[in-house]
Write a protein that binds this DNA or RNA. Structure first.
Lengths: 345, 345
DNA sequence: CTGAAAGCGCTTACAG
DNA sequence: CTGAAAGCGCTTACAG
């Protein structure tokens, strides 16, 4: 194993000082063009690469963004939720475009006071992404803020949380999809998913749902709602519970596509025809939703745009530009599971 | 924005030397227990975090793994291929478990001689993942090797490529799925996908396919094969081409699920019933494949296990342990698109 | 058990 | 345009 070359080695070979090497390799116009080219050629021959640790230490910046993925501790630990996986892909791509490196870490040890800040020294800024109990990390966000760490949070603006937020309008998404079901004549609604403060995005979807029902005069106290975490299994179980109850809805609004897929599965064991006897809608437009049988009416969050917005907002913040919170509109995707003929397929 | 605390600040407050602070924070048993606890408490109060750049520079290791995602330059640039996305998720998780940070970068600029080595200074080792022209980077792998950079390549063992490889047995997968079709009585085969040296995994799948046909005495020179990159659109187009030709196959073996999804789509416009008149099989078992109509018979590469194997092999290599190449078995997933009743749903 | 000192490999004022 | 020098914030022999 060869020793790694340093800028001194290059300097030695090129017959110049190490300072000049450093300048030449950063394309400084201060260096004579020919000298610069000669140095760059030698560096290339030696497979020399600037040591990032040294360079970052000296420059006090790393050109790296850290992505902290908070996971819902209640969810199945074997896979990343498809929505976040999609966001991960999109953020990876947006970072590549912006010429930043991306450092990805999972955040699941609640009690590790280190972890939140761990990355602050390796990255110029942090993207916070995840479900889970936002309340629990409110004080941690405040600490980040106080430290002067640049960060952007995925989620809706909330006066309770410090820092910049980029999100998608879950209230509007919940409203729109419910409104669509109402326009198709559905009357007896049920909601499957968490609606508590534990998961703000699910809560907002639920509130949009309630608001649409209220406008239609269908809001009443005994609207069925079954708790479910965002997995197919939980959706399956929740639908079983609903089927076992005495009031059968004609429209089931699910807090996520994963839940809705479980609901479709549960209904496959019954004599009910989805899209005819009962409507089912999801949320997220994960890739599978278009292929479900019947294809799932859902609400899209544009993950590609979201990744770009998050990365660009963070980079602006890193450069001390003012950045505003932003709420992307949600887009209703009408397919067959809600029983319209107006299919996008 | 507050100045970030350094170990000297802690030392000052604690009334000890900076060396002692450094030892205390790394839990060195050399430091008196009470002193250590006092220092740790002060560090926590000040929200102090060891500067990774300085620490890594000094220690000459970073506890970070770099993932280089090579993309097929011919593929749609809007999304990461679902198989790699799944690998990305699994590698992220495996790194978290192993307590390594993960640095993700895209690699699409062929001519950037910098990029390959860029990460070698920020990471202790590299995972190489991607389709695309392996030939093109053979010399680059050799350079990495020569430099003493630790790296693991996703793919089958190949004497032509230096370094450790972890892969899934594409030959066997292609063989098995074809064998299954043969056992169902299919006779007229076609293959859709690249089969050249450009993409070794596709080539291996194709060779497994040919080998199964040969054993069945069905190998002949005019077996139809249509080129297609790994996208739904390309699969759609390839199937159109096949439909327009004079010989209609009764079994279509696709080099990937994405291709197979496009094939199913093309067949939906015909009078042919998939699973009855014609069998279609894919490769990868991407999440959508189970939800396709009909559900897609395919070959699974266990991405979760693959991620763990890649990460663990790399960590072993980093610690200078001997690591063997490994080829995971591929697993046939029988569903409905091949026309059996033995569905796994 | 603790401290003073060297040095990891760079970048960048400063001086010419 | 170039060089000598300082210093980024740590870790770790070395000495006690």
């Amino acid at each position: 194993m060869k020793e790694k070359a340093t800028s001194f080695d290059i300097a030695h070979r090129a017959g110049v000082s190490q300072s000049t090497v450093s300048r030449a390799l950063s394309n400084s116009p201060l260096v004579n063009k020919e000298t610069r080219e000669r140095i760059q050629r030698i560096a290339q021959e030696l497979n020399y690469k600037v040591d990032k640790n040294a360079s970052n230490l000296r420059k006090q910046k790393s050109n790296t963004i850290a992505l902290l993925l908070f996971e819902d501790p209640t969810s199945d630990d074997s896979m990343i939720n498809p929505f976040f996986l999609s966001m991960l892909g999109s953020i990876t791509r947006a970072c590549a475009t912006a010429n930043y490196d991306l450092l990805v870490s999972f955040q699941n040890l609640e009690d590790d006071w280190h972890a939140e800040y761990e990355d602050s020294n390796k990255a110029d800024g942090i993207i916070l992404l995840g479900y889970g109990d936002y309340m629990a990390y409110r004080t941690k966000l405040a600490q980040l803020q106080e430290q002067g760490t640049h960060f952007v949070r995925w989620g809706a603006h909330d006066a309770e949380y410090p820092g910049i937020s980029i999100g998608c309008d879950n209230f509007q998404g919940g409203y729109d999809v419910t409104h669509h079901l109402l326009s198709l004549g559905h009357q007896r609604f049920a909601f499957i998913g968490d609606a508590g403060g534990h998961a703000p995005e699910f809560m907002a979807r639920h509130q949009g749902y309630l608001s649409a029902l209220e406008n239609a005069g269908l809001l009443h106290d005994d609207l069925p709602r079954i708790d479910a975490i965002s997995t197919e299994d939980a959706g399956f179980d929740a639908m079983q519970t609903l089927l076992a109850s005495d009031t059968l809805p004609d429209a089931v609004v699910c807090a996520s596509d994963s839940i809705a897929l479980g609901v479709l599965k549960a209904l496959r064991n019954t004599s009910l025809t989805v899209g005819k006897d009962i409507a089912v809608v999801g949320y997220d437009n994960i890739p599978v939703s278009a292929f479900a049988t019947p294809s799932l009416t859902t609400v899209q969050q544009n993950t590609r745009r979201a990744g770009e917005l998050l990365v660009n907002a963070l980079i602006s913040a890193i450069n001390n530009k003012a950045v505003d919170d932003f709420l992307m509109p949600a887009e209703l995707i009408v397919r067959q599971s809600c029983g319209t003929k107006d299919s996008t397929d």
